[in-house]
Every structure is written in structure tokens, then in C-alpha cells.
Amino acid sequence: MEGAYMSWLILIGSGLFEAVWATALSRSEGLTRLVPTLVFFAACFTSMGGLAYALREIPVGTGYAVWTAVGAATTAVWAMATGAEPVSLVRILLLTGLVACVAGLKLAEG
């Protein structure tokens, strides 16, 4: 049980690093700006490494869905918080629904 718990924590952390690399990729202007490009590669390596580690214990369909949802939701929330994307009730509700559906995958795992 402890190994599975650690895998879930690493998977969620890896999803957060997915948001970091996605944001850095956007700010790198096609990998032409040095610092965002370096952040992109470091975060991408960390994110993928954590995903690979977590998938040793977590089924790939569930793990990939959680990793992607954590990254997508975090990226969208960060973009809204920084003013890069508009904030609306519909966006917030849809992001909440995304996270709830993916959390449901864990519950359905049985």
C-alpha cells in the first residue's frame, strides 16, 4: 500500500511539472529564449520521469489520465491567475468537472 501511495503522490507531482513545462514552452517562443527553454527541458524530464515511475504501480490508462488532467487543469488555472487567459464561471466549472471525472477513475479502479 505504501508503494502505491507514493506512486500517486509522484504522479500528481509529475502532473504539476507538466504544467511547468507547458507554460515554459509557451514562453520560450519556439525554444528561442534560453531560460524558458531550459525550464521546459528540466520540467519535461522531471515530469516524464515521475510519470514513468508512477506507472510501475498505477495502470497506464488511469495514470496517464490523471497526469494529463493535473497538468491541464494546473496550466489553465495558472494562465487564468496570471491574466494570460480569461476567467469565467464556465471555465472554472469545466475544469472542476475534468478533475472530478479523473478522480472518479481512481475510485472505479476498485
Rank of each mutant, 00 (worst) to 15 (best):
A73K: 04
A84F: 10
L31R: 02
V35I: 08
Y64L: 11
L107Q: 03
G61K: 01
K106Q: 07
V87P: 14
L25D: 13
A76H: 12
G50L: 11
F45N: 05
G15Y: 11
V39H: 04
G49M: 03
I12F: 10
R56L: 10
M80E: 08
T62E: 05
L93C: 11
T32Q: 05
S14M: 07
L94D: 08
P36Q: 06
F40G: 04
M6K: 00
L55Q: 00
W21R: 01
V70S: 07
L16D: 07
A108P: 01
T32L: 00
L9E: 03
T62H: 00
V90P: 13
G30L: 00
I10M: 01
F17W: 08
S14C: 06
A81M: 11
L11T: 03
G71W: 11
A103C: 05
L95M: 09
L38V: 12
F45S: 15
G110L: 04
E109Q: 08
M1A: 07
T75M: 14
A52C: 12
V90N: 15
C44P: 14
T37G: 06
W67N: 03
T23Q: 15
L98N: 01
I10G: 05
M6F: 10
A19I: 06
I10T: 06
V20R: 01
V90R: 11
L105I: 00
G13D: 04
M80Y: 10
M48R: 12
G15E: 12
V66M: 12
L34R: 02
V35F: 12
F40P: 05
F45L: 15
V70L: 12
S7W: 00
M1E: 01
C44D: 13
A22E: 15
A43F: 06
T62I: 04
V102Q: 03
I92F: 15
S14D: 03
L105V: 02
A108F: 00
L38T: 12
T37M: 00
A76N: 08
E2V: 09
R91T: 11
G97A: 05
A4T: 07
A65E: 02
V39R: 00
T37R: 01
C44H: 14
W21G: 04
Y5A: 14
A100W: 08
M48F: 15
W8T: 13
G3V: 12
G83Q: 05
V20T: 06
L9T: 11
M48K: 07
M1L: 03
G83F: 07
S26W: 13
K106D: 01
V39Y: 08
L55S: 03
L95T: 04
A19W: 08
W8L: 10
W21Q: 04
A43Q: 06
L107M: 05
K106E: 08
